[in-house]
């Protein structure tokens, strides 16, 4: 896992739960806590921090991950506004993940192991995103998607008819977005 993800986690924990909480989590996870955004660190280290947060915040691990995604995305949007500015709504943005966003991520962070989504766009209202990764971070994707909809001021409903965590061989993220009334 790229160090930048650890940096983002640190930023949102410190902001919402204070500096002490991050120290607590590092201690609980047994981590040295020195993360360079360019470096690579074991996936396991991230999962340990998530586990520590889950205990400390009394939240299920997936909820921690989803919360992290939801809060990290605005920071990313702030840092790389041009990825977002070229679209006006959530769906077209999500459709560029593989070819544009993750391609750029690979340039910024060589060696980044980003997931490849496949899409089912047969319905104009409902977008199906297929996710398959040994990291099983579908909850992070959910959080990112929810925050993206927030960025474009849209309402989103999101569920997973299939999920690797429930024994399926892939996750299917069902995304439907609409402009708020009024």
């Amino acid at each position: 896992m790229k160090g930048v993800v650890f940096n983002l986690l640190e930023a949102v924990i410190r902001r919402d739960y204070g500096d002490d909480m991050w120290e607590t989590l590092l201690d609980a996870a047994g981590s040295h806590g020195a993360y360079s955004s360019l470096g690579n660190y074991p996936d396991d280290e991230l999962m340990k921090l998530v586990g520590a947060a889950s205990s400390a915040l009394k939240m299920p691990p997936d909820d921690v991950v989803r919360w992290f995604g939801r809060n990290a995305l605005p920071l990313l949007a702030e840092k790389h506004p041009h990825f977002f500015a070229s679209h006006k709504s959530t769906r077209p943005f999500l459709l560029t993940l593989n070819d544009v966003i993750h391609a750029e991520v690979r340039k910024l962070y060589p060696g980044a192991d980003v997931p490849v989504f496949t899409y089912d766009t047969s319905s104009p209202e409902v977008l199906l995103m297929h996710y398959r990764s040994p990291r099983k971070l579908c909850a992070l994707a959910e959080g990112f998607i929810e925050a993206t909809a927030g960025y474009y001021a849209e309402e989103v409903s999101l569920d997973q008819p299939e999920c690797m965590k429930r024994g399926d061989d892939r996750c299917v993220l069902r995304v439907s977005v609409r402009k708020p009334k009024g």
């Binding site: 160090g3 040295h32 020195a34 993360y35 360079s36 955004s37 360019l38 470096g39």
Partner: peptide, 8 residues
């Protein structure tokens, strides 16, 4: 932070 910087 120093360690992260050295690593970077």
């Amino acid at each position: 932070e120093q360690r992260a910087r050295a690593e970077s």
